[in-house]
């Protein structure tokens, strides 16, 4: 589904943020990407739907080369759902409009179709009552659930999550993770940048550990939590799991 091959990325002429990143996500797989701040995990996931350009290597999503200048990026992106750290709902639009906008403009669905699909997904994330409110009237956890519904409304073939719970108050993390766990259990292909190791243990198939722009560890969940091969991953795990 997603193939990342020898990707290098620089900011400016000398600062390298990604170094020779190679991995793959197959259909139905849930892959968690973790690592310390500044390790390039968010950058890597943003390269997958070309929100960030990269200078070397290839990324192929569902057989389409992302870094090919001839690729129709809007079309490709419409099939790749993305959830952001800061939700990025459109604050001037009601929740229903947030859900319908791209369905109508990109997929060409009728107003009624888009509304029906949006309402169904809103019900799924448990927010039917908030349909006619504006994003600013919702809590962070509710906003993030709307953001997930908005991405799902496009019927994506894969979902990317960029630290979906990092900007949330602790008591709201659970409600968002519940939606994500349910999604994973239904067989959605997911690539998730997160520090939530509980989520990784519960539903991840594989865990990728990044440090200083490199993929240091790429292992199955049991291998990763059992006995990480790299020292850096072990140190990282011991730091976040003891709390």
């Amino acid at each position: 589904m997603i193939e990342i091959k020898h990707v290098d990325k620089w900011y400016g002429p000398s600062f390298q943020v990604l170094t020779d990143c190679t991995t793959a996500v197959v259909k139905g797989e849930v892959v968690v990407v973790c690592g310390p701040s500044g390790s390039g995990k968010s950058t890597l996931i943003k390269c997958v739907n070309a929100l960030e350009p990269f200078q070397k290597g290839d990324i192929i999503v569902d057989g389409i080369k992302v870094n090919d200048p001839k690729t129709n990026l809007p079309k490709l992106r419409s099939r790749v759902g993305m959830v952001f750290q800061h939700f990025e709902l459109f604050p001037h639009l009601k929740i229903t409009e947030n859900l319908c906008l791209a369905q109508q403009k990109v997929l060409g669905r009728s107003r009624d179709e888009a509304m029906a699909r949006g309402k169904k997904l809103l019900e799924r994330v448990g927010l039917t009552a908030q349909a006619d409110k504006y994003p600013g009237q919702l809590s962070g956890g509710q906003q993030q659930r709307v953001a997930i519904a908005r991405a799902l409304a496009m019927d994506p073939i894969v979902m990317l999550f960029d630290e979906p719970t990092s900007a949330l108050d602790p008591e709201m993390v659970g409600e968002v993770l519940d939606v994500m766990v349910q999604l994973a259990q239904e067989g959605m292909t997911m690539m998730v940048v997160t520090h939530e190791m509980g989520f990784a243990r519960k539903v991840a198939h594989r865990v990728i550990f990044m440090d200083r722009g490199e993929i240091v560890e790429d292992a199955t969940k049991d291998e990763f939590f059992g006995r990480p091969r790299s020292e850096r991953a072990q140190t990282f795990l011991s730091k976040i799991l003891t709390h």
């Binding site: 943003k46 739907n49 929100l51 990026l73 809007p74 079309k75 490709l76 992106r77 419409s78 099939r79 790749v80 759902g81 993305m82 952001f84 800061h86 990025e88 709902l89 459109f90 906008l101 791209a102 403009k105 990109v106 997929l107 908005r150 991405a151 496009m154």
Partner: peptide
């Protein structure tokens, strides 16, 4: 914020659509 533009792109909107709608 830049994130608003990124969110528009991520949904498959084109540059003119992001500008006009978001």
């Amino acid at each position: 914020p830049k994130g608003q533009v990124a969110a528009g792109y991520a949904l498959g909107l084109t540059y003119p659509q992001v500008m006009a709608n978001i």
